[in-house]
């Protein structure tokens, strides 16, 4: 059981302020995902938790104990790196046993632990192989195994799926979610730039931008009640449609946002009308790009095959309960 409490954490490199006053309370056993565009500070925050980076001010506490100055290996954490960082000159067994050996654990105990982890990750057959003889997914599993054997209180993942191809990424995503079920007491912090990973895996998501926490909440909270235009635009695919000027004035807002799946299509008589400029067929769904006279086309989702072609005139109506209204500073307006 390990809670993770981050209080007023700042991190600067010289004049560059990377993390600005971060406050987070992560409960024991939670799966937390840090998400945000590149350069938002999410990896730096993870590295500060791991101890690989020292923080400029504030405190990081694991299980109530401030660990600001504690060596990374003594914080009770384990980390899976983006490149896996497998030791290329050691076989799978030695990769997993390395940390235990440094702890001074007896040999038979090491063997027991490594074998158990290998079993769990279906790596038993590959224990004697060098990392270069493994596939991408197997390497990923070794990296996870190396972390598991340490029995960490907090499990850190730094964009672990970004080096895999699309199919493998989905599979590994499921495996990590299963891992979470198997280790219910371990707190997991997961960094990604991919909002799909965040939505599918997280108990709670932390959205970061420019070193500032934008919003913390469950995936559905972020989807349904974004606290800013940035979060509204970042979460969900395709990106939320934003309309301003005259389109928004009607709703008493500076900007209105509506997701593609929340627009009703009718041949005419809707709220906004315009010409179809492009339509994408994905088979199960289709997306229609509609020029309603705003700065950018409005994207509309339809189930199945698109019934419209470029040049057709179309009318759409937003579902009012799904319409997001924002003020000039990008904050949501509530009724």
């Amino acid at each position: 059981m390990a809670s993770l409490k981050i209080t007023n954490v700042n991190k600067s490199y010289g004049n560059v302020h990377i993390l600005k006053d971060i406050n987070l309370d992560i409960e024991s056993g939670e799966f937390i995902v840090f998400v945000g565009p590149s350069g938002c500070g999410k990896s730096t925050l993870l590295r500060c938790i791991s101890g690989l980076e020292t923080i400029t001010s504030g405190t990081i506490a694991i299980d109530g104990r401030v660990v600001n100055d504690v060596a990374p290996s003594k914080r009770g954490i384990a980390m899976v790196f983006q490149s896996y960082a497998l030791y290329p000159h050691m076989n799978v067994y030695r990769n997993m046993a390395y940390g235990l050996k440094l702890m001074g654990m007896p040999k038979d105990q090491i063997r027991q632990k490594v074998d158990a982890a290998a079993e769990k990750l279906q790596l038993t057959k590959y224990l004697q192989r060098l990392p270069k003889a493994l596939s991408g997914g197997q390497r990923q599993r070794v990296a996870i195994g190396r972390a598991i054997v340490r029995d960490p209180k907090v499990f850190l993942f730094d964009e672990p799926l970004s080096n895999l191809d699309a199919a493998l990424r989905v599979q590994m995503r499921i495996e990590i979610s299963q891992l979470k079920e198997q280790l219910p007491n371990t707190t997991m912090v997961y960094v990604t730039h991919d909002q799909v990973e965040a939505m599918t895996m997280a108990d709670r998501i932390v959205v970061l931008k420019d070193g500032v926490v934008q919003q913390v909440g469950s995936p559905m909270e972020l989807y349904e009640k974004p606290q800013s235009m940035f979060v509204a635009g970042f979460i969900g695919s395709p990106k939320m449609n934003f309309l301003n000027g005259g389109f928004a004035d009607k709703f008493g807002a500076n900007t209105v946002g509506i997701r593609a799946e929340h627009l009703e299509v009718s041949p005419s008589g809707g709220t906004w009308s315009g010409k179809v400029i492009y339509s994408e067929n994905l088979g199960s769904d289709s997306y229609i790009y509609l020029d309603v006279g705003a700065a950018e086309p409005v994207i509309v989702r339809q189930s199945g095959k698109a019934g419209y072609q470029a040049g057709d005139t179309l009318s759409v109506t937003p579902r009012m309960q799904e319409l997001h209204r924002f003020d000039a500073s990008g904050k949501p307006l509530h009724n």
Binding site: L52, P72, S73, Q82, A85, Y87, G99, L102
Partner: peptide, 12 residues
Amino acid sequence: REIMESARMDGA
């Protein structure tokens, strides 16, 4: 770099 950091996390 990550190999060095991983070793450090492992307590080396």
